[in-house]
Design a binder for these strands. Structure first.
Lengths: 117, 117
DNA sequence: ACATTAGTTCAATGATCCTTGAAATGATGA
DNA sequence: TCATCATTTCAAGGATCATTGAACTAATGT
């Protein structure tokens, strides 16, 4: 991931409604949700929802597919993982003991955890 | 971390210059950098730098202290960790195998990795 | 005290983003 | 085919954010 893509992804997440949408989809997993159900849960109109979903999709954070009369959206795991990785790249110049002294290591609840690559 | 703080933090990172500043500080570790050196590395003026650092500080992502004639800035590790954790909270409703099948688990290069709490 | 260096605050302008309803598109079932 | 439901696109406005130079505050050394 490059800086430009990272800014796009962060901008996509940096909005109250979009962050709510994103977190709903994180919870929901690969099966995704229909646009209509997202709109209901987040409490916004269809137009606004469509606008925000487009931003998230354009940022590589969600993707969609048609499911009969509905359109389903789900999180783009790889895009999210790349973003988290980018944010922590070269932390303390590869000497984790420098920041590791202040916080505890622990297991992530999810494979979205940052990895070195 | 609540939704409001997360949006503030993401908004702070969602800007080309601020993301550059942030990543410089991530690399640099706890010793931090002077404002002047950040400005030189990122290639922006003092006024703009001050504005952006204020945004990052307000978002809880960096902090600063005076060091003689200079002001040093460094990353706020806990704030960053909270943000990463918030973004992946309840991923796949606690069933990591759902998203874990598509990406490989691996160790983070840094203790900033997401943890379950 | 004064000159110099380092950073921050202020105010105004321009740029970008968000919201809204109305219209358009796509899919289903009778 | 027609009515209906689901979602997207369009266009206009209001709101928010970024940039700039100038003025200001803070620390240092002489």
């Amino acid at each position: 991931m490059d800086q430009r893509s990272a800014v796009t992804a962060l901008s996509a997440l940096a909005h109250d409604n979009r962050l709510s949408i994103f977190r709903q989809l994180v919870k929901c997993g690969p099966s995704g949700m229909t646009a209509g159900n997202i709109a209901r849960d987040v409490g916004i109109g269809a137009t606004a929802l469509s606008f925000h979903l487009k931003e998230l999709a354009n940022a590589g954070l969600v993707h969609s597919w048609r499911d009969g009369r509905y359109v389903r959206y789900s999180i783009e795991v790889e895009g999210m993982r790349e973003l988290l990785s980018f944010l922590t790249e070269d932390c303390c110049n590869g000497q984790p003991e420098l920041c590791g002294t202040t916080i505890k290591r622990a297991q992530s609840v999810c494979s979205l955890q940052v990895r070195d690559n």
